[in-house]
Design a protein around this nucleic acid. Structure first.
Length: 421
RNA sequence: GGAGAGGUGUCUGAGUGGUUUAAAGAGCACGCUUGGAAAGCGUGUGUGUGCUUAACGGUAUACCGAGGGUUCGAAUCCCUCCCUCUCCGCCA
């Protein structure tokens, strides 16, 4: 959520930012709500001040044995006026908040201006494309042949997009999760969390999934809960409505399954494990001061990259331009893995700096050096998402005989297994 | 799921309709005192919003789990909900 005072004073800058984002936002409507809200407050607070004063004098009159009935009538009238204004303020507050919740974050001034994904610059890349001296197989064929997953039976249980991993495939999932959690906790200084896999509406609103993207979420309507679309939601919101007294940055990592309806993307790149409704992911989340968030964002991105480096997978980092930036993000790097059989880049991580946008929605603050309560900056990134990581491992590490060479970093996690065959 | 007890500031904890402007204590900060420290003494010690100010601030209002209601006036009375604890039931 944007700071309404800032919007009030920088309406033109907000409008420009929204144009750069290709976002249709009625900034003027927000300003109208804001004006009306302040008008009401001036009037109603004045009335309340008067009422408080008179009410107190009624107490004194009763003590002195005087009859307060005449004054009571007068205050009652005032109370009716206050009730009307209170009600209107509630309405305007709700309208203003709702309008603000639908305004995306302002892009950081370092975020490149651009129209869509074709304007996203490549920041850097690591490793090289694998060259085969045989015809490489697609991961969906490798997976079925090696009995790592059984997508048909997964679909039988829950529907397409709900992968069923089997045998060594299931173990590979578990190994990758453990490998990543160990890396982030032991070498990158993150504190591990095991969170609820469902969140309520407040939490989903805090990080920006709601209200705008309700149709992307699964719902458990009987209980008002949402299966988490990312660990970002529980981890960020765990500090909601708090003034943090720990030293910043706070760094957390957590594994959760992620549930996404993927509404509107039916049929797009869905073969195999490329786009699924349920997937495993290890997430990193940081809470920082405004001064250090840019630096911590860069570091977090490098932490995600180390996962891929240790696994020896060729990747590139691109920076999202204003037109492609996610709703809540001010700045974002995507990390994409090269898949050697399909010969395309697959996004496995999205590392975003949200500035104080989520902190304002979720009300997460700290005391700065002057002792003033200030919104923290939140940063998060996948470190990393599993199914596409598995795709790259299968396609890139396959050999002529159809087996898969496992990277050395995974051997201990696979019980010493070095090869899937 | 049933029955009961609770939820007050950083913490402990008083407060069942009217100077409560939320007592008191602890903690914390600052000051005095001291060779230095402790003790002692003194002062201060939340959050949001509005108005005002160049700023420090000032001022009004709201906040005692959340949201409604009754009343001239609510931490206090009423309603709904949430959470915690104890016991029972069910259960991995």
């Amino acid at each position: 959520m944007l700071d309404i005072r800032w919007v009030r004073e920088n309406a033109e800058a907000v409008k420009t930012a929204m144009i750069n984002r290709n976002a249709e936002v009625d900034v003027d409507a927000v300003l109208v709500f804001d004006n009306r809200r302040r008008e009401i407050i001036v009037e109603v607070d004045g009335l309340k001040a008067e009422r408080n004063k008179i009410s107190k004098s009624i107490g004194l009159m009763i003590k002195e044995g005087k009859d307060p009935e005449a004054i009571k009538a007068q205050v009652r009238e005032m109370g009716e006026k206050i009730a009307v204004l209170d009600e209107e303020q509630r309405e305007v507050d709700a309208q203003l908040r709702d309008a603000l919740l639908y305004i995306p974050n302002l892009p950081a001034n370092t975020t490149p201006v651009g129209k869509d994904e074709s304007d996203n610059p490549v920041v850097r890349s690591w490793g090289e494309k694998v060259a085969f001296d045989f015809e490489p197989q697609m991961h969906w064929d490798l997976g079925e042949t090696l009995q790592l997953f059984d997508l048909e039976r997964g679909a039988k249980i829950a529907g397409s997009g709900f992968p069923l991993f089997t045998g060594r495939g299931a173990k590979l999932e578990r190994a990758l999760i453990q490998f990543m959690l160990d890396l982030h906790t032991e070498e990158h200084g993150y504190i591990e969390l095991a969170t609820p896999f469902m969140c309520n509406e407040t939490a989903m609103t805090g990080t920006g999934q709601l209200p705008k993207f309700a149709e992307d979420m699964y719902t458990v309507s009987l209980d008002g809960l949402y299966p988490v679309p990312t660990a970002e939601v529980p981890v960020t919101n765990m500090y909601g409505n708090e003034i943090l007294d720990q030293e910043l940055p706070i760094k957390h990592t957590a594994y959760t399954p992620c549930f996404r309806r993927e509404a509107g993307s039916a049929g797009k790149d869905t073969r195999g494990l490329q786009r699924v409704h349920q997937f495993d992911k290890v997430e990193m989340v940081k809470f920082t001061t405004p001064e250090t968030s840019a630096e911590e964002h860069e570091k977090l991105t490098l932490d995600a990259e180390r996962v891929l480096q240790k696994l020896g997978l060729h990747y590139r980092v691109i920076e999202l331009c204003t037109g492609d930036l996610g709703f809540s993000a001010a700045k974002c790097y995507d990390i994409e893995l090269w898949t050697a059989a399909q010969e395309k880049w697959l996004e496995v991580s999205s590392c975003s700096n949200f500035h104080d946008y989520q902190a304002r929605r979720a009300n997460i603050r700290y005391r700065n050096e002057d002792g003033k309560t200030t919104f923290v900056h939140t940063i998060n990134g996948s470190g990393v998402a599993l199914p596409r990581l598995v795709i790259a491992l299968l396609e890139n590490n396959q050999t002529a005989d159809g087996s898969i060479d496992l990277p050395e970093a995974l051997w201990p996690y696979m019980g010493g297994l070095q090869k899937l065959l």
